[in-house]
Design a binder for these strands. Structure first.
Length: 166
DNA sequence: GAATAGATCCGC
DNA sequence: CGGATCTATTCA
């Protein structure tokens, strides 16, 4: 199984969000097949954390693609994102749900997904292109007609059609 | 330094 | 539908 390379992430965010469906996240021996993602694109996207500009929190998104962006939300849950596109263009894809082939269970929601894998803010800013414990590989083939595109969930502004799911 | 909103989940 | 519970950002 070959890791996905920088080329995969360094591309249009909406396309990456779509391409991530069916891919496998490897995290210290655990695996998740992605079946739901959301794109957060640039400073013109009001729902994107980086819309307010460069801060200590959002600087990851301004960096190179293929890096993890993990943050704590509502004081309880971690959310896993992968940074996309070129440097100085803040964009990322939120992993909202997946399927765990080890425990045979579906995982809905970014908070539960991180809890399942054991992801915390310690795993923020990890280069997943060159890491041996945390990376992605090709997974199942997803037919384009199997992909649903809807508006994003849990946000109050920027309700674009940026959510991809199988 | 205080207030507040937030890419959520769970239990009632 | 409200509570849990922390962080980044904004305002005084």
């Amino acid at each position: 199984m070959n890791k996905l390379t920088l080329n995969f992430y360094n591309s249009a965010t909406l396309q990456v969000a779509k391409n991530l469906l069916g891919k496998i996240i490897h995290f210290y021996g655990k695996k998740i097949i992605i079946n739901e993602t959301e794109a957060y694109i640039g400073q013109d996207d009001p729902a994107c954390h980086a819309a307010k500009g460069l801060t200590a929190r959002t600087e990851v998104m301004f960096g190179r693609a293929g890096v993890s962006y993990v943050y704590l939300i509502y004081g309880m849950h971690y959310c896993l994102n992968f940074v996309t596109e070129a440097e100085n263009f803040p964009a990322a894809v939120l992993i909202r749900g997946g399927y765990c082939p080890i425990t045979n269970q579906y995982i809905n929601g970014p908070g539960r997904l991180c809890k399942h894998l054991g992801i915390t803010k310690n795993h923020n800013k990890i280069d997943i292109v060159n890491n041996e414990h945390f990376f992605l590989t090709e997974g199942i083939i997803v037919l384009p007609e199997a992909i649903h595109q809807t508006s994003r969930i849990g946000i109050s502004q920027g309700l674009g059609a940026c959510r991809e799911s199988i």
